[in-house]
């Protein structure tokens, strides 16, 4: 757990703990909504009350099962992470479902699919020839993560992440050139 909460267990709630708990739920509800809004767009931030309600409901279910929560703020934090994961996944699923049919149909060309698959395989083969950390840095970079995100992901220093990406890119270009691709 990321913190130690010396307060009373939540099962036998006293008013101050309840107030603290309520405030945590409210604050986390707000935070989750704003975090999810970055993935799902501003529309999600309009459902803050729903998010708060979900957090509350989730905690209530767990309270029912476990009776006592020894570290309320840790508990709310963990619940907030779970709820965030669920909201983001739900939002992503909703977006996929919303892709227009005509757009999805363009993915049906077997020749293009084959060429893309071959390119992908060549690319993967080139990537796989790099050192492990350079591969990691480069995959993160190519997936759209910036240097700061990459450093947090792998617990690297900024310089290390940046240098791994830069050198990985140079290596990758060399590999692609060796295979007659790229320039």
């Amino acid at each position: 757990m990321p913190l130690e909460d010396a307060r009373r267990p939540l099962g036998a709630t006293q008013p101050p703990t309840e107030a603290r708990f309520e405030s945590l739920i409210r604050d986390y509800g707000r935070l989750i909504a704003s975090v999810v809004a970055r993935v799902g767009g501003p529309a999600v931030s309009e459902v803050r009350e729903d998010v708060e309600q979900e957090v509350r409901l989730s905690l209530w279910r767990q309270l029912q099962a476990e009776q006592t929560i020894h570290h309320p703020s840790s508990y709310v934090y963990a619940t907030a992470v779970r709820e965030t994961v669920r909201w983001v996944k739900r939002e992503l699923a909703r977006r996929v479902a919303a892709v227009p049919e005509e757009l999805a149909a363009t993915e049906g060309d077997p020749w293009r699919a084959l060429a893309a698959r071959e390119d992908q395989q060549t690319f993967e083969a080139c990537l796989n020839r790099l050192t492990e950390d350079r591969q990691r840095a480069l995959r993160a970079h190519l997936a759209g993560f910036d240097v700061q995100e990459t450093m947090r992901m792998y617990d690297w220093s900024y310089q290390k992440a940046r240098n791994l990406i830069a050198r990985g890119m140079a290596d990758l270009r060399g590999e692609l050139r060796n295979r007659g691709l790229g320039g």
């Binding site: 989750i32 975090v35 970055r38 993935v39 994961v85 983001v88 990691r136």
Partner: peptide, 16 residues
């Protein structure tokens, strides 16, 4: 870094 869905989730968890 290989999965778009988990990448989106990571960004959210990271920010939280």
């Amino acid at each position: 870094v290989r999965c778009a869905e988990c990448a989106a989730v990571w960004r959210a968890v990271d920010e939280l």
